[in-house]
Amino acid sequence: MNIEQLKNFVILTRTLNFRSAAEKTYIAQPALSRQIQNLEEELNAVLFDRSKRQIVLTDAGIYFKGEIVRILRDIEKVSEKTKQIHKGEAGSISIGHASSAMHSIIPPLLLEIKKRYPNLSVSLLEGSNGFILEKLKTNEVDFGFLPNALIPEGYETVEVYRENYFLILPQNHRLNRNTFTNLTECRDEDWILHPQEGYGYMERILQIINEFGYQPRIVHRSPNTSSVLRMVAAGLGITMMGKSTLKGFKLNLKTIELKNLEHQLDMKLVLRKDRKAELDNYYTVILESIKQLATP
């Protein structure tokens, strides 16, 4: 099999029509059919079910398509980086991050990277732990900064910092830092939280609340930190976040630092182990930079 053959296969999976695919690949329909047959013979697997009026992918074909799309994307990325190295250009990296990392580690990290690699292009992608882990898996992101993430096998992790959680309340809320004892006092409150997705961040917050003997009454959920804080400021409920998340927001809020909790928010740097050698220069710079940066 060759790259052209694989690209033509992907085009056929999108059109599911040999004539349309032949027009898009600029080769004759019989030649395209032979390519696909040769591919199936080489794989010893049937990729398309041709028994119906319109061809459809088999289970093997669906799996093969997913892997080949990823591989072709990686080949394109490697080719581009090879050209950049040949030309003496610095290239680019992509960093995925949770919103709290933008309020703590990301800005000073970008300044440090700029000092060392002035021609390096750094793109940012913000999202939840699950979203960033998926982008790391598909190589759409090179590094991730994730809070309290449950990291699957195959990833390198480095703790960047730990920080206390804060209870966040509307400015006129009855609770205040002088009289507050613990989260038991929030048993009857309305809560505004991020969605659960099974990757650690919100699960840890719910675990903390549950340890005080109750399930929080969640009235609103939003994946956007700014939206959560604005709803709290409007008096719609209370929430709980890491200390650094609050940086940069000037809202009508009251905060209580939860100093006596057993748990803290743990921010991690994450990358795939099988890409460590490829990203070693940038990984080293990031590690050195985060050691120099003050803990938020």
Score class of each variant (00 low, 15 high):
Thr295Gly: 14
Gly66Tyr: 05
Ile55Met: 14
Tyr165Phe: 15
Gln171Ile: 13
Lys77Pro: 01
Val56Trp: 10
Ile132Lys: 02
Arg204Asp: 07
Met202Leu: 02
Tyr283Arg: 11
Ser123Val: 04
Leu109Val: 07
Leu206Arg: 10
Arg19Thr: 13
Ala31Asp: 13
Lys81Gly: 06
Leu120Asn: 04
Tyr165Ser: 04
Pro147Ser: 10
Leu72Thr: 15
Ser79Cys: 06
Gln37Pro: 07
Phe180Ile: 08
Leu12Gln: 01
Leu146Ser: 05
Gly154Tyr: 10
Thr239Ala: 14
Ile3Lys: 12
Trp191Leu: 01
Gln29Cys: 06
Glu153His: 09
Val122Phe: 14
Pro30Met: 05
Pro170Leu: 09
Ile11Ser: 03
Ser104Arg: 00
Ser121Arg: 14
Gln35Pro: 04
Gly200Cys: 10
Glu23Leu: 06
His173Asp: 10
Ile3Leu: 12
Trp191Val: 06
Lys259Gly: 09
Ile209Cys: 12
Leu6Gly: 03
Leu287Phe: 01
Ile218Tyr: 08
Thr58Met: 08
Ala98Asn: 12
Ser51Leu: 13
Gly237Asn: 01
Glu262Val: 02
Thr239Ser: 15
Ile238Met: 00
Pro30Trp: 03
Leu167Ile: 09
Ala277Pro: 05
Glu134Gly: 15
Gly61Glu: 00
His97Val: 07
Gln35Glu: 13
Lys115Asp: 04
Leu229Met: 14
Ile85Tyr: 13
Met241Trp: 08
Leu293Val: 06
Ser128Lys: 09
Glu197Tyr: 00
Pro296Leu: 04
Lys250Cys: 05
Leu236Trp: 02
Leu136Asp: 07
Ala90Cys: 10
Asn8Leu: 04
Gly237His: 02
Asn210Trp: 10
Asn2Ser: 05
Leu279Asn: 10
Arg275Thr: 09
Gln35Thr: 13
Val56Glu: 13
Tyr199Ile: 03
Thr15Trp: 06
His220Thr: 04
His263Trp: 13
Asn139Leu: 11
Val219Lys: 14
Val56Arg: 12
Asn164Asp: 08
Gln292Ser: 08
Ser33Ala: 14
Leu293Thr: 11
Leu167Asp: 01
Ala98Trp: 00
Glu163Leu: 00
Lys268Asp: 04
His173Trp: 05
Leu269Cys: 11
Leu258Tyr: 05
Phe143Tyr: 07
